[in-house]
């Protein structure tokens, strides 16, 4: 197993732990171009769709924020009528988390940030 594979395996473990938090439907680490680095998605979520949609959202947002002179975002919370998505900038990619609507966002965000910290730490170590 090479370094990248080992890193992906550890990331998947972190994502699986994150998915144990009540309300989290699935999570993924994806690059801006839509390359999936690690994923732990529930049965209702399709890897290709989540990656493509996330990549489009990230690219459009970054481009827009840059044009407005607001720099890159560190975190983006998207709320829809039937669910939420959280995007956290990991520098080397983005942590994308899909959350059920009924859950209190505050608690889930703490867990998401904790997972993001672990993944960032992993990148520094390797």
């Amino acid at each position: 197993m090479n370094v990248a594979e080992r890193q992906a395996t550890v990331m998947e473990k972190i994502l699986e732990e994150l998915n144990q938090v009540a309300g989290v439907k699935g999570s993924m680490v994806v690059t801006k171009d839509g390359v999936v680095v690690a994923e732990a998605l529930g049965p209702d979520l399709q890897k290709d769709v989540v990656a493509a949609v996330s990549s489009h959202m990230i690219q459009m947002s970054e481009r827009g924020l840059e044009e407005l002179g607001r720099g890159m975002f560190e975190r983006f919370v998207l709320t829809s009528a039937h669910g939420r998505m959280v995007f956290v900038n990991l520098d080397v990619g983005y942590l994308v988390v899909i959350i059920k609507m009924e859950m209190r966002l505050g608690q889930v965000l703490i867990e998401v940030e904790s997972a993001a910290r672990k993944i960032r730490g992993l990148n520094r170590r390797i």
Binding site: V50, S54, M57, R70, G71, T79, A81, H82
Partner: peptide, 20 residues
């Protein structure tokens, strides 16, 4: 588009948090 393709229905709001 993201909301509809992710099957979480209509986009309602979003908050981008940056350094500044």
């Amino acid at each position: 588009e993201c909301s509809l393709r992710m099957d979480i229905s209509t986009f309602e709001k979003g908050l981008f948090e940056g350094k500044d």
